[in-house]
Design a protein around this nucleic acid. Structure first.
Length: 382
DNA sequence: AATGAAAGCAACCGCCAGATA
DNA sequence: ATATCTGGCGGTTGCTTTCAT
């Protein structure tokens, strides 16, 4: 299968499994367990590669599989989980006992996506198309100024195009916003790629998705976003416990697991550029705490709110289903940040969602960004 | 009844990351 | 330190079945 060496060594069967093959595989695994999948076909007397055997077992032969059509409850759950997890089919499947990632994926692609579209909901962002349309119209206005009347304008009402845009709009908005702030020297700089990606990730999510106040789980700490409704604000960073600016240069970006501020929360505060008092040097970014947008008292209040929600968040983190419940229960309510002491969510609790299958280094940041976007899409109204 | 389109589904492909040699 | 092996995942393909005309 694929480029795996097992497939080169001998001519192996492909395609649909015969009942005889199923019986051989089932008998073998029932008796001996699968152990090393690559050795299963040989031991079971099958002309298949180990990968194919594994897939057959997981998707069809496993005794705990639930067969039959999906119930309405299951469909709803998949939709809600997808809003949080995105196309993480294996993680979605983990919440539906007896269902495989493959059949959930198939259901989504063949059925649920369509249903959502029929309801006027974008299956990518889980937001109403009208909302996306409005955003796109705003974007189109800008595009038209810079690009004139292009092909995209002609396609502006096309749903598929909207989908594509909705997938990329947050990132592009955020990226340009970050660039703007970066050019003004309002964002600490760094020479490492990871750090750049970190900044990019943060700015993407913060600029692209925030509404009044949102919070995000990270791999090692809390990201709190405090904003007002002034669109021209700039950003700064600080830890709420101390009201000190978060010194991004102090973060060890060479360690993939600690690309966020260590053992603390940090806040992002929008503020008018003229209020900024940022002094950069080559190694650190020193900012007077009194010059940052939130007063100590405000920061303290936020910190208290964090503490009050700590237990609640712990529960959420232990159980993605609770997170979904939160979506239902808190439509108009502000979800508070993760507790400052919440560290290393990976791989248990929410970390399993945020940073799946231990992917780290460069992919971690992109995954993280995607996760944040998904979470933001799901929690954006909170 | 015939036929083309759409839907459903099983399996493959290609990539990634951790383990191991 | 490097190469190879392996399991796992999401995306995609292509075959079969169902539906509409």
């Amino acid at each position: 299968m694929g480029r795996h060496s097992c497939c080169y060594k001998q001519k192996l069967r492909k395609g649909l499994w015969s009942p005889e093959e199923d019986e051989k595989l089932l008998r073998h695994i029932t008796k001996y367990g699968h152990g090393c999948w690559s050795s299963v076909p040989k031991q079971a007397g099958l002309q298949r590669c180990g990968k194919s055997c594994r897939l057959r077992w997981i998707n069809y032969l496993r005794p705990d599989l639930k067969r039959g059509t999906f119930s309405q409850e299951e469909e709803n759950l998949i939709i809600e989980l997808h809003a949080v997890l995105g196309n993480r089919w294996s993680q979605i499947a983990a919440q539906l006992p007896g269902r495989t990632d493959n059949e959930i994926k198939n259901l989504w692609n063949s059925c649920l996506k369509k249903k959502l579209r029929q309801r006027g909901i974008d299956p990518v962002t889980h937001k109403p198309f009208s909302e996306i349309q409005n955003n796109n119209n705003n974007n189109n206005g800008l595009e038209e100024k810079s690009q004139g009347q292009g092909q995209e304008k002609a396609l502006s009402n096309d749903n598929e195009l909207n989908l594509l845009r909705s997938e990329s709009s947050n990132k592009s908005e955020a990226a340009s916003s970050y660039d703007h702030h970066h050019q003004q020297g309002l964002v600490p700089t760094s020479s490492t790629n990871n750090k750049d990606m970190f900044l990019d990730t943060c700015s993407a999510d913060f600029m692209g998705n925030y509404n009044n106040m949102s919070s995000y789980a990270s791999s090692s700490s809390t990201v709190t976003v405090v904003t007002d409704n002034n669109s021209n604000s700039c950003c700064n960073w600080f830890t709420p416990q101390t009201s000190r600016p978060f010194d991004i240069n102090s973060v060890d970006f060479t360690s993939s697991s600690s690309f966020l501020p260590p053992a603390s929360s940090f806040c992002y505060n929008k503020q008018q550029p003229e209020d900024m008092n940022v002094k950069n040097n080559t190694t650190t970014t020193m900012v007077s705490s009194s010059s940052w947008g939130l007063e100590r008292e405000e920061a303290h209040q936020i910190h208290l709110m964090e503490a009050a929600e700590e237990a609640k968040w712990s529960e959420y983190l232990q159980n993605p289903m609770l997170m979904l419940a939160a979506v239902h229960q808190n439509n108009q309510e502000i979800i508070k940040p993760l507790p400052p002491t919440t560290t290393h969510l990976v791989p248990d609790t929410l970390g399993a969602i945020m940073l799946p299958h231990s992917k780290q280094t460069s992919s971690t940041t992109t995954t993280f960004s995607k996760d944040i976007q998904n979470l933001t899409a799901a929690f954006g109204h909170i």
